[in-house]
Nucleic acid binder design. Structure first.
Lengths: 206, 206, 206, 206
DNA sequence: GATGAATGAGCGTTCATTCAT
DNA sequence: AATGAATGAACGCTCATTCAT
């Protein structure tokens, strides 16, 4: 089980390169993420990258997937199931805002270039990314489902709800990136939760 | 003010080229939208495009902007103010779904590659696009505002509400493009409206 | 039927590039024939080559094929059928020596790198080259066949004879290129003819 | 003179590597013979190859030279001088066909890419290969010379004859590799001998 | 001696942009 | 105004060679 010395070094190199990749993506976008720039940023020769990644596409996917996976892991770790279901949803949304906000540059690129999360049935890399996304949505959906079962929220399709909740979170960040608001992040968080949970319409007492 | 003959011809050329550009974007994505292909599609020489657009970027921006502008115009034309405010919102959302769905290919590219709608304060092209987007959001916000004033919906920040409504519409289409759902478009429309208007939480009679 | 001005220019460019290609092949071999060097030699930008040839392979094949085709055409034009069949063979061999000798550098590369004339059933370029070679062998074979029919030479498989005759011609030049002989070209010519026509064995009067 | 233990080991390593090199050449051609692949095939690290060979070129030359040398040695060992001279020639030709045919893959590459046997006066590697080739031709020439002296064949330049005989053998194999014939190897052997010994021309009893 | 990770020059190819016609 | 041939910087990728371990 113990990783050998070489494996450690290799892991370190891979991380270094993936970190550099994310930094470059954050700084220049996907379009501007060239192998040359990643190599420069990682202080490594161009050829070295090809020792660890077969193609540029594989490199970018690995960088995105890793960032994505870490985000999901962190999120899943959160929230004891004993909580009030609505509080749990709130807690997850707030945590998600924190996490996304702290990786600004890289996530800005990912959020703004969702073509990368595009789905191309033939391409194994895109299939992997899509599956990861589904894992994340499933997690959100399971939280919603429990809340529905416990009567805390209205019975809607949990998958649809999960997708929309994610869109609202991402959308809020997009809105900030586009400088369409100057309200503090916390205010946006609460507004999203309010909107998602209560909707807009004034409730006729039903 | 009267457009001269030359200006008419020029306008015709420009819109031919922009149409071709959108067709190419729809067919091959932003990545695959090369000047060569646009020229081919517009049945015009490559050099001709540079008579009307300074750079490739300017061309793409113009194509997107124009498509966007047409969409807004069509939407704004809709809906007499006399309607029930909630019905008006519903009507606008439904129309938006129709419009987006009927321009599938081009909009698929725009939706999936929103990096293009990025905001780069230094870049006049991106500033223009942002302003257009704001115009659209202002229109949606004005509709929401009226509904608020008439007590039809809860008093929230209309700009935020407008942004989120748009995100939910776009998100729904994105979800379809990612093949995460196979429900009919109409069902998705109604789910979005339901969610947007009523929220998720079971309403304690307030 | 008249070639337009553009076609003439295009043809000129193509010739220029093919000539340059052959010069580079002659100077640096197939291995050393890079697009950069051909572009330099043709005094043309790298990209220009790709206006006329889809790939490097296509360029090299065109250069070889053209040189080859010209050689065959020149050869076929030769020799009135009325001649004495053996004299005709001699005349063809002598002409072939002249032609090959005058294109030394390029042909040196082709002769020395017959891998290029290799046959790869899947590759249309290699198929074309092979067919051209067969055309050439067929021509030689037809000459041999006529000589056989007229009783001037022994009845052997004309295709085999043609191939071997060619090998002997090429071999002679190869021998000179390897500097394994310093006899004058004419002497080699006659020796080849002598060997090809009479063989080595002292003839028991049969 | 006695080889030390180290020298033995070293010799073993070297021939392992050269064998691997020939296998790789046979499988992927000269073009495809990379140091990586040779190292893999020899189950040796890439760097190890550079302990024994200064450059890739030196490695390939050594591999070819060694294969060539073995062929010559085997051939020279053959044939008691007491035989009938013409029979000896026949026997040598037949043996050569056998040997070449049994090393098909490697020799296919060498035959088809004779640029490698090129002669570049400045390059010591090519000089060595050329000298080896001359040794081989000298051997063939000595056989021819003896036959001439014993009146078995016509008095021609033995060096020329040797070169041409070799060309005819190689050519026959080339013809098979190009798939220009489907006759059995034995038939080709006899045709070559027939042609080489008797020539084409119907013999006027001289 | 043996290793293989690291290097970087060099390759074939693309494509936005220019400019002589 | 319109053309499209020409350009060349930039790209992703390969591979012979080096060198710290």
């Amino acid at each position: 089980m113990a990783a050998s010395r070489e494996e450690l070094i290799k892991g370190y190199r891979v991380s270094e390169i993936l970190d550099a990749t994310r930094r470059v993506i954050g700084r220049r976008g996907f379009e501007g993420a060239t192998i040359d720039r990643v190599a420069d940023e990682a202080k490594v020769a161009k050829g070295t990258i090809y020792l660890y990644f077969a193609t540029k596409e594989a490199l970018l996917h690995a960088a995105v997937t890793e960032g994505f996976r870490a985000n999901i892991a962190e999120l899943s770790a959160n929230g004891a199931a004993t909580e009030n279901p609505v509080e749990r949803i709130k807690s997850i949304v707030r945590q998600q805002f924190r996490q996304l906000d702290s990786n600004k540059d890289f996530l800005k690129a990912v959020i703004l270039d969702s073509s990368f999360v595009n789905f191309n049935a033939g391409d194994p890399l895109s299939v992997e990314l899509r599956e990861l996304f589904i894992t994340y949505l499933d997690f959100l959906a399971s939280v919603l489902k429990e809340a529905i079962e416990r009567g805390a929220i209205r019975p809607i399709d949990p998958q649809l709800g999960a997708f929309m909740l994610n869109e609202m979170i991402i959308g809020t960040l997009r809105r900030r990136l586009l400088q369409l608001t100057d309200s503090p992040l916390e205010a946006d968080e609460e507004a999203v939760l309010e909107l998602f949970l209560k909707g807009l319409q004034t409730a006729p007492c039903n």
